[in-house]
């Protein structure tokens, strides 16, 4: 039988195909337009009607068998090919270092953006202030008495035109209170200046982030809420805070806010001087005089204010022990702060 013969012939030839091109030759020889199977097919017209059906089925079976076998062999050869390639593959030292070209952001910028985003998420606006301020905005408007020592030359950088380099972000309070003239939630980061000698823990130029919230009914409990939320969000864990009495002319009552030390979880360590707490933020309920001076009815409205010691937070966050590094422009230090938002 022709069919049986073709089948046997194919089987031996396909076994002998050593690579994909030989296999393709076999495919063309049997399945091509002028291939053996097509050729066999042409004999169908010579057969009797009843034989035609059987013959047709046999040819189709042969064709399927050949197609399957070729596909199988193809997969087998491809697999062998890849294995051969892998054997000759050159090994790369995948542990070699790569250098990522990147500039750096100042560590303050990185953390400031993070904190701003947290407050924006809680509905606070972000405002801007000046660095050179009037005596009125810096002192009078925030209820600092006329003869207060903070106004002395030893503490404040006075300028030749009787303005000052702002000593606290609170200098922007009056302007912001006037801008909203009622309920508001705002933070205003800024650079502040104090006329003092510089050492590893004191700077004459430093950053604060101040916040203000004014509404009809605001309590100490609300202040605790926002400070706790902000710190917990920043440190990505629940942070305990505590308030202690503190005196600042622009708030009444005034507090020092401590956060439980994030390094030792309050057990006491070198960073928190073994107290378990970090002093982070003077804050308090806005002094009615500050509201009055901004034209706000202090009987109707009240609020809280806080002044986050931002540079201290930066130092804590990055384990920095010398505040002078921040303004130094020392690129060996700064280049470590690769872009991150």
């Amino acid at each position: 039988m022709e069919i049986e013969k073709t089948k046997n012939q194919f089987e031996s030839e396909v076994e002998n195909a050593k690579d994909l091109s030989q296999l393709d030759n076999v495919r063309v020889k049997y399945l091509g337009k002028k291939g053996l199977v097509t050729d066999l097919m042409s004999h169908i017209k010579e057969l009797a009607i009843e034989e035609k059906k059987i013959f047709g089925q046999k040819i189709n079976a042969l064709k399927n068998m050949i197609e399957n076998k070729i596909e199988q062999t193809k997969q087998k050869l491809e697999k062998e090919n890849i294995e051969k390639k892998l054997k000759s593959e050159k090994k790369i030292d995948i542990t070699l270092p790569v250098s990522i070209e990147s500039g750096s952001l100042h560590p303050r910028t990185i953390l400031q953006k993070e904190i701003e985003d947290i407050f924006v998420g809680m509905g606070f606006t972000v405002e801007d202030g000046y660095e050179v301020e009037t005596e009125y905005n810096n002192f009078d408007a925030v209820n600092v008495p006329k003869n207060h020592p903070a106004r002395d030359m030893q503490d404040t950088f006075w300028l030749s035109n009787n303005q000052v380099l702002k000593t606290q972000t609170s200098a922007a309070q009056n302007r912001i209170l006037r801008k909203y003239n009622g309920p508001l939630k705002a933070i205003f980061p800024g650079r502040c200046f104090r006329n003092e000698a510089v050492d590893h823990s004191h700077e004459n130029t430093f950053f604060q982030i101040e916040g203000l919230l004014v509404d009809e009914e605001v309590s100490v409990g609300n202040l605790i809420f926002f400070m706790k939320k902000m710190l917990s969000e920043l440190f990505k864990k629940d942070i305990n805070i505590r308030l202690r009495p503190g005196f600042f002319p622009f708030v009444e009552p005034g507090f020092e806010m401590d956060a439980q030390c994030t390094f030792c979880e309050g057990k006491g360590c070198q960073v928190c001087k073994h107290s378990g707490w970090l002093e982070l933020c003077p804050c308090g309920m806005i002094h009615p005089q500050v509201l009055k001076l901004a034209g706000i009815d202090s009987e109707k409205y009240c609020g809280f204010a806080f002044g986050l010691g931002f540079d201290r937070l930066v130092m804590l966050q990055y384990g920095l022990d010398d505040i002078r590094m921040l303004n130094s422009g020392n690129l060996r230090f700064l280049k470590q702060f690769k872009t991150k938002f």
Binding site: E116, G123, P183, S219, N222, I224, F225
Partner: peptide, 15 residues
């Protein structure tokens, strides 16, 4: 003093 949230008017924040 318990920590307490504050519900004021909700409005878009501006930067």
């Amino acid at each position: 003093i318990p920590s307490m949230s504050l519900l004021g008017e909700i409005k878009p924040t501006s930067i």
